[in-house]
Simulated assay, not measured.
Amino acid sequence: MVKIINELKNRGVEDILIVSIDGLKGFSDAIHAVYPSAEIQSCIIHQIRNSTKCISYKDRKEFCNDLKNVYRAPTEEVALTELDNLEEKWGSKYEISIRSWRDNWDKLSAMFKIPKKLEN
């Protein structure tokens, strides 16, 4: 994998601000080997799929609507508050799904470090 990332550098990519990755083992290490200051962001879509696979079909739409408040929050502080709200509402029923967000938060929250003026 480092070879692939090195090829990006050889083709002129001087720096990377943020990289969204799936769960491929060793990918974040390969990126940091070549671009040590790059932020690693786990793919939100993969996280949503993983955390909703054990949600009952009858609850899935409502749970996902509540979950949107977490990953669409304007700041990390608001996102964490929304995660608390999600846990308060659904935690007793879907503890594993919410725990996966908490356990992976360091990999899911890099997107909140992007200054608003760089978005779009």
Rank of each mutant, 00 (worst) to 15 (best):
K3I: 12
K3N: 13
I4P: 00
I4V: 13
K9M: 08
N10F: 08
G12F: 02
V13P: 03
E14G: 03
L17H: 11
S20Y: 09
D29E: 08
I31F: 04
A33S: 14
Y35S: 03
S37D: 15
A38Q: 10
I40R: 05
Q41R: 08
S42H: 10
S42V: 10
Q47C: 03
I48C: 01
R49M: 04
I55K: 01
Y57I: 11
K58H: 05
K61N: 09
E62Q: 15
C64Y: 05
D66G: 00
K68Y: 05
N69G: 12
P74K: 14
T75I: 08
T75G: 09
N85H: 04
L86Y: 05
L86F: 08
L86M: 11
E87A: 10
E88A: 12
K89I: 14
S92G: 12
K93I: 06
E95Y: 12
I96L: 13
W101G: 02
R102Q: 06
W105G: 04
W105D: 07
W105I: 06
D106P: 03
K107I: 05
L108A: 04
L108V: 06
S109T: 09
A110K: 02
M111E: 06
F112K: 01
K116V: 07
K116D: 08
K117F: 10
K117D: 08
K117S: 14
L118H: 07
